[in-house]
Design a protein around this nucleic acid. Structure first.
Length: 579
RNA sequence: CGGGAUGUAGCGCAGCCUGGUAGCGCGCUUGACUGGGGGUCAAGAGGUCGCAGGUUCAAAUCCUGUCAUCCCGACCA
């Protein structure tokens, strides 16, 4: 492609609305333009990058034996009502009535395709002999993001690869899941991305039923914890803290508790300020409803509750914060003054609470707290649990080391669904004994736009983007420095057509502009390999070949330049696909 | 949905407080020069100042409303 014949609107200045590097660079390098909040046009360079990433995804999906199909973005709302997800999605689900002849049809734009694919399979699968089966598609999804942000990272319309596996047994599901997991690792490696697979909140199936794939990036929306020494990594919601049950600290020689007035001070922070103590010297008493029964959860004052862990510790189906009436009934005090001493409902204690020798707690009376409370003496418990979010410095659950926090961009998610959708939509198969069973499903998503944005976010320098060859819009940028010099153009044209014939994606900057201008643009759009043909080199009979990522330019005889570039590109492509 | 900010030429911004001719840089057009890291000179084109209403002889500027965009938070199968 010749630069003069395509559309690459580069910008010298950074648009004011773009805050993070990927957004700024994608705009400045002419990959995208915004139409409205949460919706972007992909210009030619952006489209080419998306296409390259999609093709890698497609190849790796095919390699697992998954088969590609294409389902409608338009979906009847009834499907979402049958699975209960119309409510679950709420406002996120874009849906609207349309007029058809004399009646209304209520449609949704697909936020994902569990319903459609399950409905499809319920009609097409009847025997265990057809299974296992995995299908996938690469298609635009729609979700009404309450707050689109970070450029292309969080939008209401985005390109997603979604795959769905169907199995007769949990073993079959596990096998499909593992294949997808491995394929995801290959995909991100081939895209030149650094990535971390993390254990994610897995819902009803539990165990290893869900992993997210994260690109470590300071601007990532997700917080993950990881251990540098053993490689353990998990979503913040999911991360174990590696702490164990501790017997209560010594109860000897502590003075008895005292009740103090704390008028109107119902928060940890306010009480700590008032008593001139640290929040870590207090115990937070949270009242929950677990399967509709009240229970008190005790955490150290500076810690954050983790609802998933609490729910699992109680083996409860549902868990929610108690309403004010329940709190008042359970504690005989208004919200903000709950404490564990002589509390009439069951209490659940976090590991760290038992390590406190003495603590300040709510007194279960309005405007009063109790100081000098000793866990194990003033209230008792048999065991303790991991009930809070992990924090930096917590012990690693898998080794001796400590956990650290990193931010990440979620670029993929694999999930063992089980039979939630197949039961709701009656997608069943007949086993060898003619018994009916619901299909056992898995679902697997990759945000294709996020691969591109993630690369832009993590692979750049102060001059612009630095694409890996595998997803670069073009592999080679050929720069004739003076297009009005016939000698320069003769050699440039010949290298250009040689590269094209070899199947290399080459962009020739044929604009009549000064060299410095073209160099700046080349740095900005970040094409990995650059060939320069200019007057200086011509005198020596050479072209200069240089990687965008750095290093010195090589001087290659003009006649060999194209071949040299072809070899370099192929070697780099091989390196990325074999690593 | 709560909090904050910003809307003036394609992009970045000034002007607004103190009402009176709409400005700068980049980009764009034409020409000449120039030609290895965002060139120089000359001549141009381009804006109902987000929108609506109000105050005023007069509104980019003051007031009210509204819309849009961005940021923080809540939310995110």
């Amino acid at each position: 492609m010749r630069w003069s014949q395509t559309l690459i609107p580069t910008m010298k200045e950074t648009p004011a609305d773009a805050e993070i590097p990927s957004h700024q660079l994608m705009l400045r390098a002419g990959l995208i333009r915004q139409l409205m909040a949460g919706a972007y046009t992909y210009l030619p360079l952006g489209t080419r990058a998306i296409r390259k990433a999609s093709e890698i995804v497609r190849q790796e999906m095919d390699r697992t034996g998954a088969v590609e199909l294409s389902m409608p973005a338009l979906q009847p709302i009834e499907l979402f009502e049958r699975t209960g997800r119309r409510d679950a999605f709420g406002n996120v689900l874009i849906n609207f009535p349309i007029r058809r002849r004399d009646h209304n049809v209520h449609l949704a734009l697909g936020p994902t395709h569990e319903e459609v694919v399950t409905d499809l399979m319920s009609r097409l699968i009847s025997s265990y002999r057809q299974l296992p089966m995995t299908v996938y598609q690469i298609q635009t999804k729609f979700r009404n993001e309450e707050r689109p942000r970070f450029g292309v990272l969080r939008t209401s319309e985005f390109l997603m690869k979604d795959a769905y596996s169907f199995a007769t047994t949990v073993e079959q599901l596990n096998e499909s899941y593992q294949k997808m997991y491995d394929a995801y690792c290959r995909i991100y490696s081939r895209c030149g991305l650094e990535f971390i697979p993390v254990e994610a909140e897995s819902g009803p199936i539990g165990g290893d039923a869900s992993h997210e794939f994260m690109i470590p990036a300071d601007n990532g929306e997700d917080r993950i914890v990881r251990c540098d020494s053993c490689g353990y990594a998990a979503n913040l919601e999911r991360a174990d803290t590696g702490r164990n049950h501790q017997a209560p600290a010594s109860t000897e020689n502590q003075p008895p508790p005292e009740t103090v007035d704390t008028p109107g001070l119902g928060s940890i922070e306010a009480v700590a300020n008032f008593l001139k103590i640290q929040p870590s010297e207090m115990i937070k008493t949270l009242i929950y409803l677990a399967d509709d029964k009240p229970v008190a959860v005790l955490l150290r004052g500076d810690h954050e509750a983790n609802d998933g862990k609490i729910r699992r510790a109680l083996s409860a189906q549902t868990l929610e914060m108690a309403d004010n009436a329940t709190i008042e009934r359970s504690t005989n005090a208004p919200v903000g003054f709950a404490g564990p001493v002589e509390l009439k409902i069951p209490i659940l204690v976090d590991h760290d609470v038992s390590l406190m020798s003495t603590a300040v707690v709510g007194a279960n009376a309005e405007d009063k707290h109790t100081t000098g409370v000793v866990p194990g003496r003033d209230f008792t418990f048999d065991t303790t649990f991991d009930l809070r979010n992990a924090e930096a410095g917590d012990p690693c659950p898998k080794c001796e080391s400590k956990l650290e926090f990193v931010h990440g961009i979620e670029v993929g998610h694999v999930f063992k669904l089980g039979t939630k959708y197949s039961e709701a939509l009656e997608a069943e198969f007949l086993d060898e004994k003619e018994q009916r069973h619901p299909l056992i499903m898995g679902c697997y998503g990759i945000g294709v736009n996020r691969i591109i944005a993630g690369l832009a976010e993590t692979c750049h320098d102060e001059n612009g983007l630095i694409w890996p060859v595998s997803v670069a819009p073009y592999e080679v940028e050929l720069i004739p420095l003076n297009v009005s010099d016939p000698e320069v153009m003769k050699h440039a044209e010949s290298i250009y057509s040689e590269l094209q014939q070899a199947g290399i994606d080459v962009l020739m900057d044929d604009r009549d502009a000064r060299p410095g201008f073209k160099f700046k643009d080349a740095d900005l759009i970040g094409i990995p390999l650059r060939i320069i043909v200019g007057g200086k080199g011509l005198k020596e009979g050479i072209a200069e070949i240089k990687w965008r990522r750095g290093g010195d330019a090589e001087k290659i005889p003009l006649a060999e330049a194209a071949n040299d570039a072809i070899n370099k590109i192929q070697a780099e492509q091989n390196r990325l696909s074999n690593q």
